[in-house]
Structure formats: structure tokens, C-alpha cells
């Protein structure tokens, strides 16, 4: 569904992504792992339309079989096409209520009943959010904010859901919970692109994984293969 060919991204004078190639198949959980500065976030942000003036091709094939070149499109165009990004650091809107944050996620839609159904669906995935629906986003705990961020990106009914560091700053028990829900969302039919520092948790649920090093793909394979890979074990899984 998504095909990245020879992607190059520059930030000022820094060549952050150098000739990255990557494929995402519909229905998969694909993970991008790698150290800080390896180009993971740059790649995911380019797909979401937040990076201007990159080189190379990112093409997306929608469920109807139509292929679109994403270069030059705006973030709002991506959301309308079915590509949603939940950004790093959760980025909940602190002054809006939980419910308003979810409604914002559904901004591109106008089917009121469908939106209410999806809000209920998010509440069923995260019962804590239902309890706190009228509370301001800024008053939630870190774990609850992450749940809200994941729920919010479901609200646009995306075809491809991208999550940037969903485990960041969460207690280990919550990491497990969040990943279990990502897996559940995938089972319900969403394709997921997961950018993670927590390589072990990500590889365990990924169908396909890419290890980035200094701006290009160093190793790729299934999640299981990479969990067994000596170089990956050495560098990312603590030996």
C-alpha cells in the first residue's frame, strides 16, 4: 500500500535520510527501529506531509487500487486520503476535553452517527478515557494521554495508522498494554507503521521490520527474524 523509493531528506545542511527504501503491505504491522537520529521520525513525518522538499518517491495505493504520489501534498490531504500520524510526545491538546480531542481526530468527517460510534469504540478500547471524557487533556496521566493519542488517530478512520514512539515515557506495564491494543487495532483491519525506540516490544508484534542506521535501511526482515538477528540483538536488544 505504501512504497518508498530512494527517499532523501535534508534539514538545513544535515542529510538526515539518505536513500531509504521501504514497503508496507496492507494489513501488516511494520516497525521502524533505530537509534536517535537514524531518520525514523523524519521518514514518518515525510509520509505525513510535514516535510517540505524531500527527494525520492513515496507512493500510496488506496484500497480502491489507485496509486498517488505523496510528494508535495499537505498533512490535511494525507488525512483525507487515509494516512494518519500520531506524533511523538502524544501532543494531546491540553485545554480541550478528552471528547473534544477525539472529535478533533474526526475533523475531516461529517457523519455524526459514525463519529459517535467510533467514539464509543475508542472508549471500549480504553475504558479509562470514557471515565474522563469531560476532563481536559492536560490533566490526564502520561499513559492516559497516550491512549487518547492512539484513540484520536483512529477517529479519522485511517487506512494506514502511523504511531511515533507510543511507548515513550510510559511505565513498562503500560507499554505492554499499549502494544496489546495496537495489535488489537491491527486485528480489526488497520495497517500500522510503528516507529519505536523500544525495539523488543515493537519487533514482537511486527510482521515486517526495518532497522535504520544513519539515514538508510541497514537490516530488514520479519519481526521474528530480527529478534533472532545477532546484529540487532547486539545493538538494540541489549545483547
Amino acid at each position: 500500500m505504501l512504497d518508498i523509493k530512494n527517499l532523501h531528506i535534508w534539514y538545513g545542511g544535515i542529510h538526515a535520510v539518505k536513500g531509504l527504501n521501504m514497503v508496507i503491505d496492507r494489513g501488516d504491522i511494520v516497525t521502524l527501529i533505530g537509534a536517535n537520529g537514524a531518520g525514523k521520525s523524519s521518514t514518518i513525518r515525510a509520509i505525513a506531509g510535514l516535510v517540505r522538499g524531500y527527494k525520492g518517491g513515496i507512493s500510496y495505493t488506496n484500497p480502491g487500487g489507485k496509486t498517488v504520489d505523496l510528494n508535495g501534498l499537505k498533512p490535511e490531504d494525507m488525512v483525507r486520503m487515509g494516512i494518519a500520524l500520531s506524533p511523538e510526545g502524544r501532543r494531546i491538546l491540553p485545554q480541550l476535553t478528552v471528547r473534544e480531542n477525539l472529535l478533533l481526530g474526526a475533523y475531516i468527517r461529517s457523519d455524526k452517527e459514525g463519529i459517535e460510534e467510533d467514539i464509543e469504540h475508542v472508549y471500549s478500547l480504553f475504558p479509562r478515557l470514557k471515565e474522563r471524557y469531560a476532563q481536559k487533556g492536560g490533566t490526564l496521566s502520561g499513559g492516559e494521554q497516550q491512549m487518547l493519542a492512539v484513540g484520536r488517530s483512529l477517529m479519522s478512520r485511517p487506512d494506514l495508522m502511523m504511531l511515533d514512539e507510543p511507548s515513550l515515557g510510559l511505565a513498562p506495564i503500560l507499554v505492554g498494554e499499549v502494544f496489546e491494543i495496537i495489535r488489537e487495532i491491527n486485528r480489526q483491519g488497520k495497517t500500522i507503521l510503528l516507529v519505536e525506540q523500544n525495539a523488543f516490544a515493537a519487533l514482537k508484534i511486527a510482521n515486517r521490520a526495518y532497522v535504520l542506521e544513519v539515514g538508510s535501511v541497514a537490516i530488514e526482515g520479519t519481526g521474528r527474524e530480527l529478534l533472532q538477528n545477532a546484529a540487532v540483538k547486539e545493538a538494540y536488544l541489549g545483547g
Binding site: K74, P75, V79, R80, L93, L96, L103, Y107, R152
Partner: peptide
């Protein structure tokens, strides 16, 4: 209203609001 929600969201975080599909 929905545009009002967009306005309030933009006032806190423009980039995230764009990621939600709002034409800033």
C-alpha cells in the same frame, strides 16, 4: 461548531492540528 474546535486546537498546537486534517 467544528471550525471553532479547529480554532481552539490551532491556538494550542498548529502542527498537531494539521495532522488531524484541519486546513490551518
Amino acid at each position: 461548531t467544528k471550525p471553532g474546535l479547529g480554532m481552539r486546537a490551532i491556538s494550542f498546537d498548529i502542527e498537531t492540528t494539521r495532522l488531524m486534517g484541519v486546513s490551518v
